[in-house]
């Protein structure tokens, strides 16, 4: 009787496995990431080692990712939200809790990145790369000293400035200059900084979030407020492009990996997360993107040039002092309208 039973169970299991195969269970890991933010070499190495195939789809903004995710367009296993998007998604219960036992390499992260305000103890997300927004200027043309936002928007620089095409960022610089906490985006505070922003935006020549370094390299602008990765690329190209962390207050952004609720491949996703936390893999990521690597073990492997790039690893900068964005919710619309209106003047 037991012999028959085991045979039946074995047959049932075999049948189930066959059915599972026939039912086209998705064996590939579906990665939904920022365009070009995950080096192909990293993906290839992961597939080589684990045999898990990875399919990649890209987006170019957090909101685009949210729009496609919420519309139900594709059950993704891994997404790459920025810190405020993680916060919003946790609040709306859109992420799966991570099984930290499956991600032992978390220990490689610097302690300040293990307990960030938007996701304490890495319950739902793991930092990928961090970065700052700061001032870059052409030291051959701009005499300096340049220490903060106010030194950017001077009359001498009118028409020679490039800034990020990001309404939230711009507003945060205005708030920082006015001494208001950057996450206090109320209507009154927006009204307070409007004259300041109006004056600033009138002097800007180029708004570019994708490749602000172009305007700097081409000589069309001399000074700007850009992502630290852009600043690092400029510095590596030519040390005449100096980087400054604004004295009014710096904020940091953190891009993370997270697993959406709709994912069916949680363990594979966790395997990938664990994989990229390895020092040599994380180093590969840093080689391509000179942002701030939260992985201490990886930082130990970086070259002196990479570590000495003032835009990637600002000397003497206390990371814990940097402010992070919180999710704006409906205020995002007001912020966008303000900046668009001021641009169109």
């Amino acid at each position: 009787m037991t012999k028959h039973k085991t045979k039946l169970i074995a047959a049932a299991c075999a049948g189930a496995m066959l059915l599972a195969g026939c039912g086209k269970k998705d064996e590939t890991l579906k990665l939904f990431s920022w365009s070009e933010y995950v080096p192909q070499a990293v993906i290839d190495k992961f597939t080589e080692e684990t045999g898990i195939k990875v399919s990649v789809e890209n987006y170019s903004s957090n909101e685009e990712m949210l729009a496609k995710l919420l519309a139900g367009g594709g059950a993704y296993d891994l997404i790459q939200p920025s810190e405020y998007a993680v916060q919003a998604m946790i609040k709306e219960d859109l992420l799966q809790e991570l099984d930290q036992a499956k991600i032992p390499n978390l220990k490689n992260l610097a302690p300040e990145f293990r307990n960030m305000p938007f996701d304490p103890n890495n319950k739902f997300s793991v930092p990928w790369l961090a970065g700052f927004v700061g001032v870059v200027y052409n030291a051959e043309v701009v005499p300096g000293p340049v220490v903060g936002y106010k030194d950017v928007f001077t009359d001498e620089h009118a028409g020679r400035i490039v800034i990020l095409d990001d309404a939230r960022e711009t507003v945060s610089w205005g708030l920082a200059t006015a001494g208001i906490p950057i996450n206090n985006v109320t209507d009154e505070n927006l009204a307070t900084i409007t004259p300041l922003l109006k004056d600033w935006l009138g002097k800007v020549k180029v708004f570019d979030s994708d490749s602000p370094k172009t305007a700097m390299s081409n000589g069309d602008t001399d000074i700007g407020i850009v992502w630290s990765g852009e600043g690092a690329l400029l510095f590596a190209e030519n040390p005449k492009f100096q980087w400054v962390m604004p004295v009014e207050g710096v904020h940091m952004f953190v891009d993370n990996l997270a697993i959406p609720k709709t994912s069916q491949n949680k363990d594979k996703a966790e395997a990938f997360i664990n994989f990229i936390l390895r020092p040599e893999i994380s180093k590969m990521i840093s080689d391509e993107f000179p942002y701030y690597n939260p992985n201490l073990a990886a930082r130990a492997l970086l070259s002196p040039e990479q570590l000495n790039n003032p835009a990637s690893y600002p000397p003497g900068f206390d990371v814990t002092s940097a402010q992070l964005f919180t999710d704006l919710g409906e205020q995002a619309s007001k912020v966008d309208e303000l900046i668009t209106t001021l641009k169109a003047q």
Binding site: K30, W34, S35, E36, S55, V56, E57, N58, Y59, S60, E64, A67, K68, G73, G74, D210, S211, G229, L233, E288, F289
Partner: peptide
């Protein structure tokens, strides 16, 4: 294309636009 393509139908413009940030 961004909104209506799947993982296996990533077209050239999608790749190109992503490359702008790193050059």
């Amino acid at each position: 294309t961004i909104f209506t393509s799947g993982a296996d139908s990533q077209t050239l413009p999608l790749k190109v636009y992503g490359m702008v940030r790193v050059g």
